[in-house]
């Protein structure tokens, strides 16, 4: 029988990982709302965030804060390139959403291969932002990086809320999410909104990657699990709802951690996917869209 300390410790660590899933999930929502596309390359932005930051830190010897400030726009540019080179031309040629979604999957594989050829297959990592620790509360240990993840995650959520509610661009993005054609008729440049959505989504992924890499490692292939878990988080929260995705990520992270304690690591994903099935069965629009409502047609 697992002890109380084990449960508490797993919840603490689950919150940290879950917040990363949540940020990835928000990235899915931002693009989905602006374009109706599920960007399956979302996970590679997390990978790129860690890889680029590590390269700037370790290979070029740039200070952490400068490396972070440079990494976010660099990865955001990769999102812009994806939109300009893959999504926009396909949309202009009348490709179906399914075809575009498949193209994002192909883009993920392509970016992974380019990263492999450029950076190599060696796993990389860098030091936690604050050395020392952990903070001990009783027998429960909390690493300092977790505070960075929690703090930056909370700040990002606040900034996103301000962006979507207080800025013209944010409101325009929300208008696109509600009805793209109507938004276009009202003079909102939908194409530019999509570009902004891809850049924002990539930047969110990059921040997640920068934050999580000091607690583990990064390599060309770490994006996929983050992408899959971020996708699950977005669905649990109600696809398209940024707050829901964040809550879904936290729930998923804690659930996976508790599943390891209660059932073993082999059942981590079984528990997560079973939970997803239950959510979809009783809450087709996600946990935050109300009980029994049928899926909204997009």
């Amino acid at each position: 029988m697992p002890s109380l300390v084990e449960f508490l410790q797993s919840i603490v660590n689950g919150v940290g990982v879950g917040l990363i899933y949540g940020l990835v999930g928000i990235g899915f929502c931002v693009i989905y709302n602006a374009s109706g596309i599920v960007n399956f390359a979302q996970g590679v932005f997390v990978m790129l965030g860690g890889m680029v930051c590590e390269t700037l830190l370790s290979q070029l010897g740039i200070p952490l804060i400068v490396a972070v400030v440079l990494t976010i726009p660099l990865v955001a540019i990769s999102g812009i390139v994806m939109e300009l080179a893959i999504v926009r031309p396909m949309m202009h040629r009348g490709a179906t959403l399914f075809a575009i979604i498949l193209a994002t999957l192909a883009a993920q594989i392509m970016i992974e291969r380019i990263t492999l050829l450029t950076f190599g297959d060696r796993p990389r990592t860098y030091h936690e932002f604050t050395t020392g620790g952990p903070l001990k509360i009783g027998d429960v240990a909390i690493g300092y990086q977790l505070f960075w993840i929690l703090g930056c995650g909370a700040l990002l959520v606040l900034l996103l809320w301000l962006f979507f509610t207080r800025t013209r661009t944010g409101r325009a993005l929300r208008a696109c999410s509600q009805n793209r054609e109507a938004a276009q008729l009202l003079g909102i440049p939908v194409a530019r909104m999509m570009l902004i959505a891809f850049a924002l989504s990539a930047a969110l992924g990059a921040i997640a990657g920068i934050l999580v890499t000091p607690t583990q490692y990064t390599a060309y292939n770490v994006g996929t699990p983050f992408g899959v878990n971020g996708f699950i988080a977005a669905i649990i929260g109600g696809f398209g709802r940024a707050g829901g995705a964040l809550a879904g990520g936290l729930l998923l992270g804690v659930l996976q951690a508790l599943a390891i304690v209660a059932l073993g690591a082999g059942f981590k994903n079984v528990a997560a996917l079973s939970f997803l099935l239950v959510v979809l069965l009783f809450f087709p629009n996600g946990l935050f869209a109300g009980f029994g409502k049928s899926a909204k047609a997009h």
Partner: peptide, 16 residues
């Protein structure tokens, strides 16, 4: 304790 190669966290297993 078991883990999966892509696990982002193994604190539970190590704690046990």
């Amino acid at each position: 304790e078991t883990y999966k190669p892509d696990d982002a966290d193994m604190t539970v297993q190590l704690g046990r």
